[in-house]
């Protein structure tokens, strides 16, 4: 078990290094950031001086190694655009994105899993058919369209919920939270539904398919033959057996939520990392972009590690126990 975690951690480091390289290499081709930083009438000397100051005149590999070294030491550089440390900018934006993703993930899990179980158990029910039809919309409509539709209905026409921003936030140390104010909570509703709708429907359809599969298994029939209650059979035996694939997909999807937050944040003018990333692209703000990519990769890696560890918790067949013989 311990050896497994160490091995996975080492693999994760390699993945992170590869992502850092790709992220860094990609932005070498995004145009000259100097153009955005100097006045239009700046002389060539001024431009070169700035380039030398930022280290952009050095060879690619030197820049990359420096970037890596800085990453490891926690120094993410300075934003080309505003001149403040990237770490500070990201730290300001990170809570907004993480809170949005957290609520969207909760929404996806707590609506998706029960809906999947329900539609799996009541295959031919009217409500099941209705939910499946609605889920088709969730799977097929693009995020930005859902966001705009929700804004149109709940913000513009009904006027119940705000159409943009985080509302009032409360500062807890470095973390600014929207969970503690009514306006903050109200502001979370539309963006998190927009962000999580696709994942909700995906998880629902996955749980449903797995439930249908598992309910046919012999051990379910045997559990019924033992006279166990429906509750114990459906939730104790059937649902637990659907969890391994569901955890895999849910884990990947939560990583996806962080990445897809870019679109939702843009639609709702949400002051998070995704919105920051979009603005940074316009200004070729390489330090922010590469840090953002590395950070998203880090979240993916952490989530995957957690998913792998959850397998062990769920499935005893993976816990290799060499002291037990087969007979």
């Amino acid at each position: 078990m311990f050896a497994y975690i160490v091995r996975r951690a080492l693999q994760s480091v390699l993945v992170m290094a590869a992502v850092a390289f790709v992220a860094f290499a990609l932005f070498q081709y995004m145009g000259d950031p100097i153009n955005q930083m100097v006045a239009q009438d700046a002389t060539l000397e001024q431009r070169n001086a700035l380039r030398a100051l930022l280290g952009l005149d050095r060879p690619f590999y030197v820049q990359f190694l420096l970037f890596l070294k800085n990453l490891v030491t926690g120094n993410f550089g300075f934003s080309f655009r505003v001149g403040t440390p990237v770490a500070q900018i990201i730290a300001e934006r990170l809570p907004a994105t993480l809170e949005l993703v957290f609520v969207a993930a909760l929404f996806a899990l707590f609506v998706g899993v029960p809906a999947g179980v329900y539609t799996g158990l009541h295959r031919h029910g009217a409500l099941s058919r209705f939910m499946l039809t609605v889920s088709l919309i969730g799977v097929s409509l693009p995020t930005f369209l859902i966001g705009i539709l929700l804004i149109l209905i709940f913000a513009v026409m009904l006027g119940w919920l705000p159409s943009f921003g985080r509302g009032t936030t409360v500062q807890l140390g470095f973390w600014s939270t929207g969970f503690l104010t009514t306006s903050g909570l109200k502001a979370l509703i539309l963006p998190s539904i927009t962000l999580g709708l696709f994942q909700t429907t995906l998880i629902m359809r996955l749980v449903r398919a797995e439930m249908l599969e598992v309910l046919r298994a012999d051990y379910i029939k045997f559990a019924r033959a033992r006279g166990l209650t429906n509750r114990a059979v459906n939730f104790g035996h059937a649902l637990k057996n659907t969890l391994v694939p569901v955890i895999t997909i849910a884990g990947l999807q939560i990583g996806g939520l962080i990445a897809f937050a870019i679109i939702t944040e843009t639609v709702f003018q949400w002051p998070g990392m995704g919105f920051l990333f979009i603005t940074s692209i316009q200004f070729v703000d390489v330090p922010i972009m590469s840090t953002y990519l590395v950070l998203v990769a880090l979240f993916f890696v952490i989530i995957n590690l957690v998913v792998d560890l959850l397998y062990f918790a769920v499935d005893p067949r993976l816990r290799v126990d060499r002291s037990v013989s087969a007979h």
């Binding site: 012999d218 051990y219 045997f222 033959a225 033992r226 637990k240 057996n241």
Partner: peptide, 15 residues
């Protein structure tokens, strides 16, 4: 009580 054909699949693997 009931006993079914295949003991390999009659027991829930997760318990």
């Amino acid at each position: 009580g009931a006993v079914f054909q295949d003991p390999l699949t009659s027991l829930n693997p997760l318990y």
